[in-house]
Write a protein that binds this DNA or RNA. Structure first.
Lengths: 194, 194
DNA sequence: AATTTTTAAATGAGCATTTAAAAAATGAAA
DNA sequence: TTTCATTTTTTAAATGCTCATTTAAAAATT
């Protein structure tokens, strides 16, 4: 049962430390030693548990992607109509647990590195496809064919852009306000496009 | 007159080489030697002309920012109405000369590094402020107060998001189509918000 | 001859990763 | 419980490589 207790704990700690350290220093500049220090461990232990810096980054992104997926599923459960579900996808992107400066920073580093690191680009492709397909299926019943794709692309670009901008900011973010704005934006798009 | 002829030529060449090399390898991974090779020069000459890797990157971004500014001014010249000028700002972002995979890649690296490099964050702030203020002044006559800001933010986020996505793609980009989509998106927003 | 441009080679710092050994935890036997 | 062998976890130190930057001298230009 509790077989891999410690292993799980260390994974958790080190992924947390990675998020924090990468946010503070950037992926290019952060060192294994800094990440380890953030977790009160040694650089060698990161390799013991993850194998390499690259694999650690991959595991960290995997975690964030899972968080996003879960946030979406949670909201899906209570959503009844296609519009509700569309809003669920949007809201999930700005969930309290997700939409923090720290995490926006990591996403920024993820986007910047994905084109150059196979494991990351794979993750990016998968995540993108998942979100796209959710949007498509909800929009199918909300919009005519000829406007669906442009609205979908606009929604996705908008969300990416908001995250991108958030990664540049210093103040703490306001997820509630972000959700409200995003919903307002979505309604603006849908009303006119319908 | 032709005092600093060679200096100008080398600056030009090396900035070009930087764009190309950073696109290929990412800012984190690219080396001075690779950039130099791309320009058929030696790593030492980069330091002779620019002083350091960081200053080279700064000069490169400055160049791209200038290109964007110029593209905007060109289009402003022929724009008559506020709506024309708004579209000019949007079109400029997707100008043939600017909206290429290479340049999108560099912007991505720029965004990722700006939070950690003073010179870059300054450039980012200045550019952002310039674009924001253009949008504000054109939207002033197009939209009522209570909807202006959300539309402006949506437009800017959208444009950033499209660039971000472009940086992940492999195929060559289609600036004409991008302009058309962006205009369509802007109209959708404006019509509904007016 | 003086100045500018160029580069090969040297320098030296920084860092991911490995190694080897110590420390902790586990658990079976006494 | 105590003991002690085994396994797991931890880290200090060593390794070795990659690079930005500097230096010193050569080449080109004026």
């Amino acid at each position: 049962m509790g077989r891999t207790r410690i292993r799980d704990i260390r994974h958790e700690e080190l992924i947390h430390a990675t998020i924090s350290a990468v946010h503070k220093r950037g992926y290019a500049a952060v060192t294994m030693a800094e990440i380890a220090a953030e977790a009160g461990a040694s650089a060698a232990s990161i390799n013991y548990y993850f194998g390499s810096k690259e694999k650690l980054m991959e595991a960290t992104m995997r975690r964030l992607l899972t968080l996003l997926k879960e946030a979406q599923l949670e909201r899906y459960a209570s959503a009844k109509s296609p519009l509700d579900r569309l809003m669920a996808v949007i809201d999930a992107n700005f969930a309290d647990r997700l939409y923090t400066i720290e995490q926006c920073s990591i996403w920024m580093q993820f986007w910047a590195n994905a084109p150059y690191v196979d494991s990351l680009s794979r993750l990016h492709r998968i995540n993108r496809a998942r979100v796209t397909s959710h949007f498509r299926s909800e929009l199918r019943s909300l919009l005519p064919d000829d406007r669906r794709e442009i609205v979908r692309e606009a929604l996705q670009s908008y969300m990416d852009g908001v995250w991108l901008e958030a990664a540049q900011s210093n103040e703490t973010l306001d997820p509630t306000a972000a959700r409200k704005e995003a919903r307002r934006f979505a309604k603006l798009l849908l009303d006119n496009a319908a």
